[in-house]
Amino acid sequence: MNTPAAHARRDALAGFGMDTITLAGPLEARLAAMAEAGFSQVMLGARDLTGHPGGVAGAVAALRASGLRPTGFQVLRDFEGLAGALHGYKVDIAQAMLEMCAALESPVLLACSSVSRHASDDPEILAADLRKLAMLALPLGIRVAYEGLSWGRTINEYTTAWDIVCRADMPNLGAGIDSYHILAARTPLDALDELDPERIFLVQLSDFMWRETQSFEDRMTTARTFRVFPGEGAHSEAVAEIVLRLERLGYGGDYSFEVFNDDYQQLPLATVTGRARRAAAWLREDVLHRAVPLPAWAGSHPPAR
């Protein structure tokens, strides 16, 4: 993987990564397939660690051996807005997930907005709980990205999620932007311009194949079984606009392809990582018009390493 051609391939994919949830098979095989395709980062899920035959330590060792860096770790669900024993229970869960996140040396924990009917809808209470979550993450050096699920009970758009992030006002609490939820909830894109790019801690990209998802039920089912890579779905123009707006805003962080797709789970790994590469190339060249750097061996300078 250290040939000049491999370097050039990695440079072309810099800033883009895949989610482990897109691929089937053992963690080692999935990580190897991503690295082979030229990706240098990976978004991991808690099940990658708990389902590993070597446990958390085995999964951490697999990540280290792959050479990929962690983009983030997902996902803490239904944390905010609970009271009493339920709140205490969720704090325990959050602490356990933060410890897993720290074991991976992942810089970001993704927390998505609550779907619980037991949760408060008072924005001050939601903000106070996220402030607490960020405080729990703080000594571990972890940043919390709060994402509005499009079927969240109270918070189901990036606009309202951002409002809660601002109310909570913690330096290590920011927004997690997921194109799927923006498209599914049909949230206007112009509000993206209001975000602080320094407080966007993660951007996840995917699309889907039909025009609309009217009900929460539709959104959930589509989200969990039939997302596709950017450039493959019915909303390519909107995905492109999201990325362009974020770039114009000054977002300089990572993009990860969060593509839950039942079909991709049945295809060879290289077939799926090939589609991910194509998505990255579409974003880089056709959307962002970024110059693909010349391979190191083609330039006048010697390879950097």
Binding site: M135, L138, N172
Partner: peptide, 12 residues
């Protein structure tokens, strides 16, 4: 990390 730890000492 200065802002993070500042917040820790300020809020806690």
């Amino acid at each position: 990390r200065v802002d993070d730890w500042h917040t820790y000492y300020e809020r806690l």
